[in-house]
């Protein structure tokens, strides 16, 4: 059981880190702000979600696990809001060609 949990956490966290690395590379390499935002939100929401999922079995109690999930949900909310606002600003200031 413990081995299974370790493997599960390892896989989830590795996948989460992969999302973060991909998001960072995309942030540096993508040509326009909207696609950079698109890449960034993937890292934030899915990457962090997978890392939280991997950490859940080791949180040491359901209260701490709930806190981890709450942190993820709050980051989702804040990240989505900030992204929407930046995107709205870009759309207003640069009308599509």
């Amino acid at each position: 059981m413990n081995l299974f949990l370790t493997l599960f956490s390892g896989a989830a966290i590795t996948a989460g880190v992969a999302f973060f690395i991909a998001g960072t590379v995309a942030l540096l390499r993508f040509p326009d702000p909207l696609s950079r935002l698109h890449a960034l939100t993937k890292a934030d929401s899915l990457g962090l979600g997978l890392i939280v999922l991997g950490l859940l079995p080791w949180a040491g109690g359901w209260l701490a696990a709930l806190k981890l999930i709450l942190v993820w949900l709050l980051v989702l909310l804040a990240g989505a809001t900030a992204t929407q606002m930046i995107a709205e600003h870009i759309r207003r200031s640069e009308p599509p060609p």
Binding site: L74, L77, A78, T81, M85, E88
Partner: peptide, 14 residues
């Protein structure tokens, strides 16, 4: 309406 309005209504209670 819009994202800021939603955040400013949802986040403060938390």
């Amino acid at each position: 309406s819009g994202p800021l309005s939603l955040l400013a209504r949802v986040l403060p209670p938390i």
